[in-house]
Structure formats: C-alpha cells, structure tokens
C-alpha cells in the first residue's frame, strides 16, 4: 500500500495549495473545526454535565452561571449543546459511512461486472430511488423501531442508492482503462483488481461524496429526531433538543432557536467544504 500513501500525500499537498485560493472551503473548514472542537472538548469546556439538572431552575434566562440559560428540566443549555455536537456528529458520521460502504460495494460490483449483475443491482437501486429518501428513512424507522441507533440504519440505507450510482459511474470509467486490462492479463482475480486497483482510484470522489453527504445526513437525522422517531428524548442530540424545545411552545423557543442554529452552522460547514473539494476535483465546475 506504499503507492497509496504517496498518492494520498501528494493529493493532500495539491489540495492544500488549492485551499489557499478557495474562500468558501476555508470558511467550511473553520465551521467544521469549531463543531469538532466542541465535540472533542465538551468534557473540559462545558460547565455542567449534559444530564445534570439544577433543581428549581427551569427555563432560567441567560446569565453568567448559565451562558444560554437552562431548559425545561433545569439543565444547562450551553453544556448540552456542546455535548450535543458529539451525538449529532457521531450519528451523522455513522450514517454517512454506512451509506458510503453499502453504496460503494453495490456501485463497484455493478460497474465492474456489468451485464446482468449491473442490470439487477441498478434496477434495485432505481427501485429504492422511487421513494423520496426522507420517506424511505421514516418507513425504515417504523420497521426497525424508534431509537437513535436505528436512525443511523435508516438514514444510512436511504442515502446508499445515490452513492451507488455515482460510484458505479466512476468504476465504469476506470474499468475500461489500460491499467485494469494490464492487471487482468497478469491473471489477477476480480476481487484483487476491484479492491487494490480500482477502489483506491475512486477514493477521492468517494471522500467528496461523503463530505457532501454529511450535511444531508445531519439534516435527515435531525428531521427524524424532530418527528419523534429518535427514541429517548433526553439524549442531547440537536434534533432531539430542538424537538424538546418545540414541545414546550413559547418557553422553549430559545432552545429551538439555538439548537437549529447549531445544525445550520454544521451543515453549512460540510456543504461549503464539500463544494470546495468538488471544485478541486473537477476544475470544470470551478467557474460555476
């Protein structure tokens, strides 16, 4: 795998050069870093625990004790938002990775083997795509049961078809190239060619797809949680927090506002960064 590490290193250098000229991507990285920092350092920065309730201080306004006030249970909103970054990112990341994994496997196999394998798999993908993906996720939760873990499965499954299509297109393009023919003539097996020769070449587009997919996953997870499909409502995930605030009508309005703002900032970060990555990969889209 030495060639791969050289390839990754040179790609990273190239990307760093590109990044210097791309303002939106810089903004994206900044936002992502901010949220990531909140997630990583929540334990040190947060003045209270995410479940720690101060007795008799429900809906306290913002003060030095509670930077953003407290919620309906007397828990510090600022601390919960910090810990919330952990849950929100972890859930969305797992869902995106699941989509990527399932989509890549289906897309790669379909694109590489072609013929009836391709037809069969792509008909299946077409079928999955005949459902609006958010609806598909809702129905998946209905089948699996309401919980935060099942949201991962639901969003992951619903997101897989579009990845599969794009990975298939990429593999189709690579399949006809000479290095694949060379590997075939050397007598390498299909698995080896797919895993060692073709997939590493798809890595960059897959990373771009994954970054752009993160934004969508965060929104889907938050949306499903808001609909009450996220299970335990007291977990400090931003979508669940937003729902909790919404259920308290006017007293929870501030909580809805800040939780939603956190979601917006994070999704914006991933979309800005993802757009930048895509521009870097496809210079044709730079002018757009």
């Amino acid at each position: 795998m030495n060639e791969l590490s050289v390839f990754v290193a040179s790609s990273l250098r190239d990307f760093a050069r590109f990044l210097k000229t791309h303002r939106p991507a810089q903004a994206g990285i900044l936002l992502i870093a901010l949220v990531l920092a909140a997630a990583l350092f929540a334990g040190w920065v947060a003045p209270y625990g995410p479940m720690e309730a101060v007795p008799n201080r429900f809906f306290a306004p913002a003060s030095l004790d509670h930077l953003l006030g407290t919620d309906s249970q007397g828990r510090d909103l600022f601390s919960r938002l910090l810990y919330g970054a952990r849950y929100t990112l972890a859930v969305a990341l797992s869902a995106t990775l699941l989509s990527l994994l399932a989509g890549s496997v289906i897309g790669a196999v379909a694109g590489y083997f072609g013929r009836w394998v391709d037809t069969l798999l792509m008909r299946f993908i077409d079928f999955m795509m005949s459902f609006p993906s958010f609806l598909l996720a809702c129905v998946a939760v209905a089948i699996l049961g309401k919980s935060l873990e099942n949201l991962i499965w639901a969003v992951g499954i619903a997101g897989a078809p579009s990845f599969a299509r794009q990975v298939r297109a990429e593999v189709l393009r690579l399949r006809s190239q000479e290095f694949v023919e060379a590997a075939l003539s050397l007598g390498y097996g299909h698995t080896r060619i797919l895993v060692r020769h073709i997939l590493p070449n798809c890595l960059t587009p897959i990373i771009v797809l994954g970054t752009l997919g993160m934004g969508g996953s965060i929104l889907s997870v938050a949306g499903l949680a808001f609909l009450g499909l996220g299970g335990d409502p007291f977990v400090p995930e931003w979508g669940l927090m937003l729902k909790l605030g919404w259920d308290q009508s006017s007293q929870g309005a501030f909580q809805v506002g800040v939780s939603g703002a956190c979601i917006l900032v994070t999704v914006l970060g991933f979309n800005l960064f993802g757009d930048g990555l895509r521009d870097w990969l496809d210079p044709r889209s730079r002018s757009r």
Binding site: L219, A222, G223, F226, W246, L264, L268, N271
Partner: peptide, 30 residues
C-alpha cells in the same frame, strides 16, 4: 457573473440546502 446578484444567488443556493426546514418554519411562524 460575479456580481452582487450572483453572490446572492450562490449564497441562497447554499443556505437553502443547509437549513433545517423545520427550524426555518418555526422561526417564520414565530
């Protein structure tokens, strides 16, 4: 291209897909 309208268009295109719809709905309703 690269005018104020262009910038507005691109920003809207970006924020539009990054907004949690239910949050926007709640704010608009409020």
């Amino acid at each position: 291209p690269r005018s104020l309208v262009d910038f507005a268009c691109l920003s809207m295109a970006l924020v539009g897909v990054s907004l949690p719809v239910f949050w926007l709905g709640f704010l608009a309703q409020k």
